[in-house]
């Protein structure tokens, strides 16, 4: 049984695609056959973050419209042999995504024995976002520690609970996980950002991880490497924790406390 996971947020620029890339890579690293689908038709990004933009020949919309087979469109990840990418179209209109078309692709992927199907949702609450979340079993709601992002996540959670296939069929609701990205404990301590506790109190869903703010993410994106591959970084460790928690392990949250720099660090600088 394939598990469909949507990575969503409502607001743009909070780290959905970064998370989709690292989350799917992390699942594949643990031996699960995984595919990640870019639902952002017209503005594709996932292939860049995954470093496979030059290998895109056919895309998601080609498959939906029957112009290419799934096998032709799926791109095998350059590092992980059980990770596949289904890129978005850059040229098509987003109305090309139909509920029937998306459902067929998801069913075909399940028949190909993918264990996890990760759907990278576009921002907003338009067709693309609704299609990405409609068939989901689980949702990773990506939020930044600031009020507008939290409000948009709340809105998305409402949509997930009302407009998904599970809601319409009266099945168990989508499992919702909160993923806090760009968390900067110092700025929280200074009162510039909402704290972990504030956000949990507002959204009231299970926290699956906190990804610290880091320049390494930008570097990884520019190089086309999912951030989870970056050795010896907080970001990669935090994403690994997310995978462990998603797969059922209980781990304490890390990288959430601000530690005042010690004398040594103050003298010699460094980040």
């Amino acid at each position: 049984m394939a598990r469909i996971v949507v990575v969503t947020s409502g607001k743009g620029g909070v780290g959905k695609t970064t998370t989709s890339a690292s989350f799917s890579a992390g699942l594949a690293m643990r031996g699960h056959k995984t595919v990640v689908i870019d639902f952002d038709v017209g503005l594709r990004n996932l292939d860049l973050i995954m470093g496979c933009e030059r290998r895109v020949v056919y895309d998601f919309v080609n498959v939906i419209q029957g112009e290419a087979s799934l096998n032709q469109a799926l791109i095998r990840d350059k590092q992980l042999e059980n990770l596949f990418i289904l890129p978005a179209s850059q040229t098509r209109d987003k109305d090309a995504l139909t509920k029937e078309g998306v459902e067929k692709v998801l069913n075909d992927l399940a028949d190909m024995e993918f264990e996890y199907i990760v759907c990278d949702s576009p921002a907003g609450i338009e067709t693309g976002a609704l299609m990405a979340s409609y068939f989901a079993d689980d949702a990773l709601v990506v939020t930044n520690p600031e009020v507008s992002s939290v409000r948009d996540s709340d809105r998305i959670l409402g949509i997930l609970s009302a407009k998904s296939r599970r809601a319409e069929r009266g099945d168990d609701p989508i499992k919702e996980y909160l993923l806090l990205t760009r968390y900067n404990p110092k700025r929280v301590a200074d009162g510039e950002m909402l704290s972990l506790q504030d956000i949990e109190d507002i959204l009231r869903i299970k926290m699956i991880g906190v990804i610290p703010e880091s320049e390494a993410v930008l570097q990884a994106s520019n190089q086309g490497i999912p951030a989870i591959h970056l050795r010896d970084t907080d970001v990669a460790a935090a994403y690994q924790d997310v995978i462990s928690r998603y797969l059922g392990e209980e781990l304490p949250l890390r990288f959430t406390e601000y530690e005042k720099p010690g004398l040594f660090k103050r003298l010699f600088g460094g980040k």
Binding site: R151, D154, R155, G158, I159, S161, A162
Partner: peptide, 8 residues
């Protein structure tokens, strides 16, 4: 019996 979210 569920949370009511922004916009609902």
């Amino acid at each position: 019996n569920r949370p009511l979210r922004s916009g609902q």
